[in-house]
Nucleic acid binder design. Structure first.
Lengths: 222, 222
DNA sequence: CCCATTATTTTGATTAATCAAAATAGCCTA
DNA sequence: TAGGCTATTTTGATTAATCAAAATAATGGG
């Protein structure tokens, strides 16, 4: 069985790959996510590569293999089921369950996990709206909602930006629509072919429908 | 915070001290309980002694300090509350919860623990009949039941033998009334000053009231 | 009272995960 | 194209927990 350190590296890699358009994750980024110095990430990733859990390109980055992704998905399944369990059955507040699940995800037996899954009625999403992978490691890829397809006023979080053009991404940075930022659609105007978006505490921002379609979003429960 | 290894050493020491009449636990015994070679136990115990969690007499044995006992009791509280939670709320079988609790006891937050305690209505004993220490580390020492004071027919487990005489202990070994064995009182005869006891699948056994009083027992829930 | 058996302690290595700091590679700019 | 900056990798140490095996102490029988 993978150590909890390995499980955490795989999990972070999976989550990072989700909303980073580039295929592979840079070592520095991984080190930051894991809260270790870069050298530690390098040596850990080499070990993961030896176990065929990741593909590692020195000086370029790291990417999960199919096996690594499966393992990551199982950890994420545990995490998200535990979160929902703690909210629904135990009655903790959804804001405190992430930290708790961070530990529990590594120690819960398969048996207990499936019992929890049953108790919750095989749920599809966790309290944050994130999808729960199946026991077979399949994720219900949420129908990719964008700033164009989502509901007006719904609290959202940007998950991914589908355009790699540098100038575009620079503008994204300035406008505060980077992955992770909290946004909501204020209004749409089909005649003007525009979408008005509010990002965090910034002034509202109007962009074209085609530009808005480049932003994948997910529902936010905060 | 103590590592989970330290928590486990302290827990084992506490449990062992419970039903061993001698004050201190021998190193070899501790090593066996922890599933490590004797040398490992020695070096670990030295570290515990440096942290003032145990008193260590080289070549004699080890004994929890007040601080060590407090820590042990907190671990045991976690363990037993988790066990009861898994049976009552999650619906696992009482036979499988020990293993599960063995892991969970180290990672559950104080908050979650108290929530579970509340959910269960501040219970006094776990599914095995073992008392649950309070949040302040107080144990309700169960009134010391013996083969003389318990109910006839009640399923019991021997917890302690109060006579250190070697010949007596040898006889205890032969008769199968060692700590941990499952017994029940078949009948008592005040006139004959005797107690008839059945131990596991052995033939029933009759001993004097004074001999029977040397056996501490606790209720068994199997 | 000495020796053999047994329990315990020492010693020296090992493994996983980490850090600090030096070395190196890649890339961009002047 | 030559520096120079930045990200990455190497190298050498460290810590916690462990084992194997040698050394040592205690105990009990002859």
């Amino acid at each position: 069985m993978a150590s909890r350190t390995i499980e955490n590296y795989l999990k972070q890699l999976y989550l990072e790959q989700q909303h980073v358009a580039e295929e592979s994750v840079a070592m520095g980024r991984l080190a930051t996510l894991m809260g270790v110095v870069p050298g530690t990430a390098t040596s850990m990733v080499k070990a993961l590569a030896d176990s065929a859990l990741v593909n590692y390109e020195p000086r370029t980055g790291v990417k999960l293999t199919a096996a690594g992704e499966q393992l990551a998905l199982h950890v994420i399944r545990r995490h998200r089921l535990v979160e929902l369990f703690l909210v629904q059955i135990v009655g903790l507040d959804w804001s405190e369950v992430h930290q708790e699940a961070e530990e529990l995800e590594h120690v819960i037996s398969e048996k207990l996990l499936e019992r929890i899954d049953l108790l919750l009625g095989h749920p599809k999403v966790d309290p944050h709206g994130d999808p729960i992978p199946s026991a077979q490691g399949q994720v219900e890829e949420l129908p990719p909602n964008t700033l164009v397809t989502c509901q007006e006023g719904e609290p959202l979080q940007v998950t991914r930006v589908l355009d790699q053009d540098a100038a575009f991404l620079q503008w994204v940075n300035q406008s505060g629509l980077t992955p992770g930022s909290r946004v909501q659609v204020v209004s749409r105007n089909p005649q003007a072919d525009s979408v008005c978006v509010q990002s965090q505490d910034r002034p509202a921002l109007t962009l074209s429908t085609s530009a808005a379609a480049k932003f994948l979003v997910k529902p936010r429960v905060a």
